[in-house]
Design a protein around this nucleic acid. Structure first.
Lengths: 182, 182
DNA sequence: GACCAATAATTAGCTGGCGAACTAGCTTCC
DNA sequence: GGAAGCTAGTTCGCCAGCTAATTATTGGTC
């Protein structure tokens, strides 16, 4: 069980430990749950680092993270390499306007094409190009390596445990009446 | 152990499950580790949701998330309520220019003051005001509730386990020769 | 004691994202 | 069958953050 080694890795603790101990010293009056605060602070820091590693890895193929994300979600779907802007926007969690901007950049770079969809003339299909697919493939390999490096310090069981715990959270989030309600 | 209930919560799985199964169907050739991909995808989604909840909670006191973060790190430190812009910028992970912008907004709102530091006339001390401390206090309560709601679906042991696993990751990240190297 | 590199903060210019308004095309319903 | 309302995508104006350049100050070094 992962909790067993909580206090053994580093005598000083991590940034979050120091953050929490300062909070206990100076703002103990506030009704914050230390464990929840520790989780959120560490989530932020892990993800920040992860993004930075991936960004660095993608530099190698000259792809920005947001461009890569878009290409990736364009490929990883039921109709690989083809989607409408609004479907992509929903998956990526960006606004319609943001999507237009990303697609403009991708089209300028020659990695996707916009073609009018058949049937409904309001619609547009975004289609990946040969060049787009190639750069996506190369980038995905690099990104995979960067991400794996991030988690290779965890034992296999711990990695599985982390995956399972996060899954519990995402399942909850995705419920129609998830924890978003006030 | 959390892994025991991986397959019991929801018959369809979460967004990440569907994402991975599409990847297996359409891009199995790529050397990506499914478990790592699942973790990173879920991390992104959990954090996105968390930020949204917190943003929503902070609306109630009329505070933007970035303003709150800044006030919070200004309070939670060895010298609560007082810091230099560059120290804050380092803690927040924003650039110096970004920090100037945030402080401009906070000062305009009357939540902090900039005062010249004694001794070194290049330096500036950012000091929280009475109003700033009050709004920080109110906002912190609201934020704590929003965050707790996010994690209250986990059993206490699972929450502790998650905290411990994330701590292993942040400890590693913060090593001088962490997994950032290429 | 004058020059030069280092440091703290700011400013300038750019990018990417957002919400709101807009355009075009589809659907519904009397 | 045509007006009202909905949907898909884009454009517009704005904001926040970044990098690079700028200003001011400090501390070495000869």
């Amino acid at each position: 069980m992962a909790t067993a080694e909580t206090e053994s890795d580093d005598h000083l603790g991590d940034w979050a430990d120091r953050h929490l101990s300062r909070r206990r010293d100076h703002a103990a009056c506030l009704p914050l749950d230390d464990e929840v605060e520790a989780i959120t602070v560490r989530l932020e820091r892990v993800l920040r680092h992860l993004r930075q590693s991936v960004r660095h890895a993608l530099d190698e193929v000259g792809l920005q993270n947001c461009a890569y994300e878009t290409l990736h979600l364009l490929m990883i779907r039921d109709t690989p390499g083809r989607a409408t802007p609004s479907a992509l926007a929903a998956d990526l969690g960006v606004s319609g306007a943001g999507m237009t901007g990303r697609l403009d950049a991708l089209e300028r770079a020659g990695w996707v094409r916009r073609t009018p969809a058949t049937g409904d003339r309001r619609r547009v299909d975004v289609v990946i190009t040969e060049a787009g697919e190639q750069i996506w493939r190369r980038a995905t390999v690099l990104r995979g390596r960067a991400e794996s490096r991030m988690f290779d310090s965890l034992r296999a069981e711990d990695r599985a445990c982390l995956a399972a715990l996060l899954r519990q959270l995402t399942l909850r989030i995705e419920l129609p009446d998830g924890p978003a309600a006030d």
